[in-house]
Design a protein around this nucleic acid. Sequence first.
DNA 1: AATGAATGAGATTTCATTCAT
DNA 2: AATGAATGAAATCTCATTCAT
Lengths: 194, 194, 194, 194
Amino acid sequence: MDGRSRRREDTRQRLYEAAVELIAEQGFSATTVDDIALRAKVAKGTVYYNFKSKTDLFEELLRHGVGLLTAEFRAAVADLPPREAVRALIRAQLEFIKRYQAFAQLLLSEMWRTNREWQQTLVLLRAEAIGVIAETVQAGVDSGDLPADLDVRVASSALFGVGLVVAVDWLVFQPDRPIEDVEESLLAIVRRVA
Amino acid sequence: MDGRSRRREDTRQRLYEAAVELIAEQGFSATTVDDIALRAKVAKGTVYYNFKSKTDLFEELLRHGVGLLTAEFRAAVADLPPREAVRALIRAQLEFIKRYQAFAQLLLSEMWRTNREWQQTLVLLRAEAIGVIAETVQAGVDSGDLPADLDVRVASSALFGVGLVVAVDWLVFQPDRPIEDVEESLLAIVRRVA
Amino acid sequence: MDGRSRRREDTRQRLYEAAVELIAEQGFSATTVDDIALRAKVAKGTVYYNFKSKTDLFEELLRHGVGLLTAEFRAAVADLPPREAVRALIRAQLEFIKRYQAFAQLLLSEMWRTNREWQQTLVLLRAEAIGVIAETVQAGVDSGDLPADLDVRVASSALFGVGLVVAVDWLVFQPDRPIEDVEESLLAIVRRVA
Amino acid sequence: MDGRSRRREDTRQRLYEAAVELIAEQGFSATTVDDIALRAKVAKGTVYYNFKSKTDLFEELLRHGVGLLTAEFRAAVADLPPREAVRALIRAQLEFIKRYQAFAQLLLSEMWRTNREWQQTLVLLRAEAIGVIAETVQAGVDSGDLPADLDVRVASSALFGVGLVVAVDWLVFQPDRPIEDVEESLLAIVRRVA
DNA sequence: AATGAATGAGATTTCATTCAT
DNA sequence: AATGAATGAAATCTCATTCAT
C-alpha cells in the first residue's frame, strides 16, 4: 500500500471495529473516545491521528458499513427474475446482519432519529441501499410479477425496515433460533412482494 | 393533595413531555438536562427535585409510556374474536404511535440496544406489552383461527417490531401518507396472523 | 414563655440536637439543611423559619454549647483552693464532654481551623472558656500553690486542649473504658498544674 | 519515565500541596476543586486526570502524609533506650508538625470525626502511626523503664493526641513561642511516660 | 505513526435559600 | 408556626480535543 501504510490501515480497522461494537451497545454519545481507544488497544491520541474527530470516525464508519451492504445487495440480485431477486435481497440482508450484527443494531438505533449531525449522511446512505431494493421491485412491477398497485417506494422502505427489525430482534432476544426460521418468518411476512 | 401535590404532578408531566421529545430527536445522552428544563419551563433544579437523576427521569418516562401502550392494547382486544383482536391491536399500536410519535421513535432507538443502564427496565416493559399480543395470538392458535404451527412468542415479537418500524418510518419519511394506507400495508404484511 | 412560644422553643431544641450530631459526624459543610430537617423531623422550611441561615444556626449552637461549658466551669471552681479547683475543672470538662459528646467532637474539629465564617465567634467563645481556667491557674500561682514560672495562658490553653483530645479519643476509640480511668490518665498527664 | 512519567508525578505533588493547605484552613467540603486547581496552577480537568475524585485525592493525601509521619517515627526511635526513644518520638512529632503544619491541622480536624467516607482509611493510618509509639512504650514497660501498670494502648493514643493538639494550638494561637518551650511543655505534660 | 498528559467547555448534580400556601 | 415545591448559583465531574514528545 502506498499513501497509507499497511500499519495505519490496520489501526483504522481496529478503530472501526471497536467503535461499531461500542456504539451498537451504548449509542454514539454514550460512547467515549477513551472507550474506543481502550477497546482498540491504542492510545487516545491515535484516534485523532487517524480521524478528524469522533463524528468523522462515525461517519466514515457509516459509509463503510452501508457501502458493504449495498454492494452485497447488488451482488445478490444479479440477473435473477423479480420474485427470486426479492427473496435473494432478503437473504442477503439477513446474512449481512448476521455477519455485522453490531453495525445492524447501530443502524436500527440511529436510522429513525432526527436532528443529529450525521443525519444527512445517513439519509443519503439509506437512499442508496433502499435504491437497490426499489430497482428490483420496480422491475417486478414492470414485468407484471408484482402487483401493479404496489407503491414501490413505500414497499422498499418497509421491506428494508422490517428485515432490519426482525433480524435484530432475533439476534438480541432469540439468538439460538436458526437463521432459516428467521428467513421463513420474514418471507411469510412479506409475501405480497416476495 | 393526595400524597403528591397536584402542582408537583403537573411539573412531572411537563418534564415527561419535554424529555420525550428531545430524547426522540437526539437520543438520551445527547439531550441535556438544561434542554429539558428549558423546554419544560422550569429551573434545572426542579428536574432534580422531581427525579433522582437524568437516568431516573428517563426510566420513569419509559414506564409511563409503555404503561399507556399496554393499557391501550388491553382496551383494544376487549372480547373480540382472535383475528379481529389482532387487527385491533395493530390499529391500537398505530394510533398510539401517531399520538405519541416521539415516544415511539425513542422506543425504536432504545429497544434493541444492549448495555444501557435502563436495559433491564426496558426488557421488562417490552415483555409486558408483547405479553398482551402473545395472549391474543395464543387464543387464536387455541381456537384454530390461527395456524397451529405458529411460534407464538416469535410472532408476537415480530408483530410488535414490524408495527413499530413501519409506523415510525412512515412518520419520519412519509408523514403525508394517510394512516389508512399504513394500516393497510401493515395488514398486508402480517396477513398470516391477521 | 412569651414572645417565643413553647412549641417554637421545642422545635429549636430539636434542630440544635439534630445539627450538633450531624455536624459532629460529618462537619459543617458536609451537613445539609435537608439532613438536619430530616433528623429533626421537621420540614426544611421550618429551619429557615427558626434561624436566619445555616451558618446562623451553627453559630447559635456554638454559643449555646460553649455557654453551658463555661457555666459548668464556673460552678465547678466555686471557692475551692487552687489545686483542687484545677482538678474540679478537669472533672467538669470530662463530665461535660461525656454528656455532650457530639458537641465536644465538633469543637475538637472546628477549634483549630482558620478561615471559616464563624472563626471569630469561636475564638471569642474559646477565650471565655479558657478564661475561667486561666483565672483559677493564676490564683494558684499567686497563692504559691502552683509554680511561679508557669506561663498561665499557655498552661490554660494546653489544659483545655489536652482534656478535649483525650476525652474525645476515649469516646471515639475506647468507649468501654470507665470514665475514672480517663480522669486518672488526665490527672497523671497534667500533674504539674493539678 | 518509570510507570508514571516524571511530569505526571510532579503534577500530583503540586496538587497534594495545594489541597493540603486549603483543606487545613477550610475543611474538605468547603474546599472546591476549582480552588485546588487554581492554587496548583493546573486546569480543573487535570485534577480528574490524576485522581478519580476529590475524595480520592484526599485519601491519597492522607496516605501520603501519614506515611511520611510514620517513617519519621521509625527513623527517630532507631535503637534508643526506652525513655529517650519516647522523647525522640515527641521531638519527631513536633518537627513533623512544624514542617507540615497544614497537614497536622487537617489531621486534628478529621481524626476524631465519624461517618466520613475516608473514615476507614484514617483509622488504619492512625493505627499505623500509633503502632510505632506503642512498640516503643511496650519496650519501655518490658524493660522496667516505664511503670508496669501503664496501659500501653491508652498511653500511646494519648501521647499522640496530646502532641497533636498542643503543637497545633501552638502554631495557631501562639506562633511566636519558640519550639523549645513547646517541647518542654509537652515533656512536662507527659512526664509519666517520658 | 503513535502516545498520553493536560486542557477547558460543558455536562450532571447538589444545596442553601425563597416563597406561596 | 410550619410546610414543601421550586429555584439558580455553584459545586463535582466528564470528555472531545490539543500538543509536546
